[in-house]
Design a protein around this nucleic acid. Structure first.
Lengths: 341, 341
DNA sequence: CTGAAAGCGCTTACAG
DNA sequence: CTGAAAGCGCTTACAG
């Protein structure tokens, strides 16, 4: 925290009696220098306490070695979405391998199309950006590479999604086959900020299609807005349980919602699946050990994240002309039937 | 993703027939310019698609508007520590207010004392850095402001901690008063990377002191290494339950561990608190709704995080000489007795 | 209200 | 193997 003037490459050069070029080489192209020169430079640098200035280096090289993780909302999203934590963990592992840093870019404040341009990153990963999201415009205008995860498939960008529609279709079909005809859908409510989560939107469509294809009326499904927090499970359950007529099953657009419902049902002494069957989505680690274990849709999260990031890194390295985005990468989903149905 | 040459401030100046200074002013000191000049500049800039280069601006101003969040391990830490997610959410809220960005700095790869100097951030928040951690050295050598959260109190830096020792003391005392004499301590095991979590270390000392002060032998407490993952709860419980002699209670160094034990006990048909009393630490939102609700230590997390960040922002703004760190800010803990004991 | 000039601290062809 | 020079794209006293 000292205030004294920064030691620059120039200072080292002067002190070591070499040119600035040599000092730069000592760090970035050591083989260009004789052993003795290099050693002398490094020694002097250490003596003076020289630390290359990362920002100056970035300006000269054009590389920040940072990727921006763009979220659809504020960072508090992480509290509602354990899946986001899982993704962060995966991304962290991959970025460590690639020696890239992670900059968090929440969607708050300035959301104009030029917003991404103000961020010092080599490329971006955008999470759950819907075509109506303010940042959807910046997707098309970005002057730097980006990839989208769980995004809106109508946007023109490399896309790494789940097969939400068919997964949801399977989940709903599963309940219909078990004879359920009054099914609540536990989903996210309209948000104040108007943010829509594309994957949830697709899942709704999948549920509805399964009902339609079974020749049942749309009223078979009744949406209920519930929160993605385990601690709100009591509320979630009560909202569902107080529907009239009372549903016999609930499809949740996310596991965290389903786990909340399970918890609420247990507190209320309602038996799952006896009185209420529950299906989640995503297959969180916790879903295998809940009481009862949760029927849900299983995905290969690490695989998908890795492909997405490798694609991004390739785009950053390539730096070629604006070409058409690759076809969407869609991870298939498998219904994991456990004891909650 | 276009490759064409970047539009610079210089281009805008030329096109608008003004000096580079004027263009810079149009963005950063609009009042210095006449309305008409400013409008003309902004219009030309928009026409040309000019976007100020964030890195160049940073080099000139010396401000990145970014803080680095330094973790004791890789980013996968987030998967084991819901409390870290809670902190991230809080930090996100505060950084939004201050228009600061968040750069994630996991402790991987280069951990030399100069590591922090290579990071483009105005300051740092260090989480859970122990005096034996490789990054402890960079704390003292940092040329930029930093604050520590849940850090090692022997390090010389602004410190924002919990009163871990006394909290743990209360928890253990509580069990002793209930008559427990065989108490397992569910804690983190030695990590391959050697990372020690200072708050867990202090909590252990608090448990031990309570036993000592009660005139009981140290063997009253038996440490068991368990994972901080709900999905590992079965393992955690079994490790504890298979101790010989069998404990009647367990103190966990974190709520997530305690919740795992609760889950494992339920699966095994072991009644809590009847057969086994369980105490956690931290008071996660989920701990109030577990079965049974968890006895734990309650803290004011948002308040502490906010003070820590305000302190950091003040240090960044001040930019004064290396003075003594303020006295540690220690949040008191309150024992929240619920049905698990 | 406006502009010429120096500076932020690096990297990297280029020439020797 | 080594160095002089231009460049990365801004900001900001300073002078007018």
């Amino acid at each position: 925290m000292s205030k004294k003037k920064r030691v620059t490459l120039r200072d080292v050069a002067r002190q070591a009696g070499v040119s600035p070029t040599a000092v730069s080489f000592a760090y970035n192209a050591p083989h260009q220098l004789s052993q003795t020169t290099r050693d002398r430079i490094i020694d002097t640098a250490n003596e003076l306490g020289y630390q290359p200035h990362p920002v100056a280096r970035t300006l000269a090289t054009g590389r920040t070695n940072t990727i921006g993780l763009v979220m659809p909302t504020g960072l508090d999203w992480i509290l509602h979405d354990p899946l986001f934590s899982l993704m962060l963990g995966e991304i962290g592992t991959i970025c460590d391998e690639e020696k890239m840093r992670i900059l968090i870019v929440p969607a708050v404040g300035d959301l104009s199309p030029g917003m991404l341009a103000t961020i010092a990153a080599d490329g971006f990963v955008l999470f759950s950006i819907h075509r109506n999201h303010p940042l959807a415009k910046s997707v098309e205008h970005s002057n730097r590479p980006l990839v989208m995860i769980n995004g809106d498939e109508s946007l023109r960008a490399p896309m790494f999604n789940l097969d939400d529609f068919n997964g949801a279709y399977l989940a709903c079909q599963h309940l219909l086959e078990k004879g359920h005809r009054r099914i609540a859908v536990g989903t996210i409510g309209p948000r104040e900020d108007g943010v829509i989560i594309p994957s949830f939107e697709r899942r709704m469509l999948g549920y509805e299609a399964a009902v339609r294809d079974a020749g049942l009326p749309p009223s078979t499904l009744r949406p209920v807005y519930i929160r993605g927090l385990l601690s709100m499970g009591k509320d979630s359950f009560e909202k569902i349980w107080s529907l009239d007529p009372r549903p016999t099953a609930v499809l949740c657009v996310s596991d965290v919602r389903a786990l909340g419902v399970l918890n609420g049902a247990r507190k209320a002494g309602v038996s799952v699946p006896g009185d209420l069957a529950v299906v989640g989505f995503d297959n969180l680690p916790d879903s295998a050990v809940s009481t009862p274990p949760l029927t849900t849709l299983k995905q290969d999260l690490p695989g998908r994240i890795r492909v997405a990031l490798k694609t991004l890194f390739a785009l950053i390295a390539d730096d070629t002309e604006d070409d058409d985005p690759p076809p969407p990468y869609i991870t298939p989903l498998e219904l994991e039937v456990r004891e909650s149905t």
